[in-house]
Amino acid sequence: MAIVVVNVMPKPEILDPQGKAVTNAGKRLGHEGFSVRQGKRFEIEVGEVTPTVLEEVRHFAETLLANTVIESFEVCS
């Protein structure tokens, strides 16, 4: 059994209110220099990692895991 990871992030030009809230909470804890953007990580169990499987995961990510209007994604294996 292998795991393929898909990371999804809000596009840089899109506001990230969650990241902003985390950044502000960090400041209250004394972390002044940090600016946080919040995304999602998906771990997908697959039988084995092949180019075909990776292509299928990419299609899965594009249609469901990420909304490419506001998010970008990367597939890592």
């Binding site: 809000p10 899109i14 969650q18 909304n67 209007v69």
Partner: peptide
Amino acid sequence: LCEARLLPGALIRNQVQ
């Protein structure tokens, strides 16, 4: 409707959090 691409764009979290 936006997710289905019947309408363009997307709705994200309110700026006021």
